[in-house]
Simulated assay, not measured.
Amino acid sequence: MAAVTTDPEPAPGPLRWAVWLLRAEGIGLALLTLFLVYELFTATATDLLSALLVTVFAAGGAVLLWAIGTALGRRRSAARAPAIVLQLMLLPVGYYMIVGGLAWLGGPLIALGLLVVGLLISTATNRALGFDTERAA
């Protein structure tokens, strides 16, 4: 007879939302990668190596975001720091989009990065990932 295991308590809302948003970002980046692959085959290349590197970078980012989201969904505390770093990288990207005239895209990117960081450092997420939120006296 197999041993019966019980699932741990469900993940708190902030952690579930952070996982969902990280995976959504990964899907968005995967779609961008597909567009870049299409462009590789149809556009006139002025610098093929740079085009290939940008495409590989986008594909790697998509895989990384999905993997980090999955790890956080499994409550792997080591995945939180890379997730925060990736979200903070959205701040300068969004800023330069705004400066470059793409405020309609840069503003939401900044907001998304800050939102996910907030979800990842919330008290409920800290508890779910096993971080001690109270310091011992």
Rank of each mutant, 00 (worst) to 15 (best):
A11N: 15
P12E: 06
P14E: 10
L15Y: 08
R16E: 11
A18K: 00
L22D: 01
R23T: 15
R23C: 15
A24Y: 05
G26W: 01
I27C: 07
G28C: 06
L34W: 12
F35W: 10
V37T: 04
V37E: 05
V37G: 09
Y38N: 13
Y38V: 13
L40W: 10
F41T: 07
T42C: 11
A43C: 07
A43D: 14
T44P: 10
T44S: 09
A45R: 08
T46L: 08
T46N: 03
L48A: 08
S50Q: 09
S50C: 03
T55Q: 11
A58I: 11
G61K: 03
V63A: 14
L65I: 05
W66R: 11
I68V: 12
I68P: 00
G69L: 01
G69M: 02
T70M: 13
L72H: 02
R75Y: 07
R75C: 12
R76E: 14
A79P: 07
A83R: 01
I84Q: 07
L86H: 13
Q87T: 10
Q87L: 09
M89N: 14
V93H: 10
Y95K: 11
Y96I: 10
G101E: 10
L109V: 03
I110N: 00
I110D: 01
A111K: 02
L112Y: 12
G113R: 01
L114F: 00
L114A: 12
V117L: 04
G118Y: 06
L120N: 09
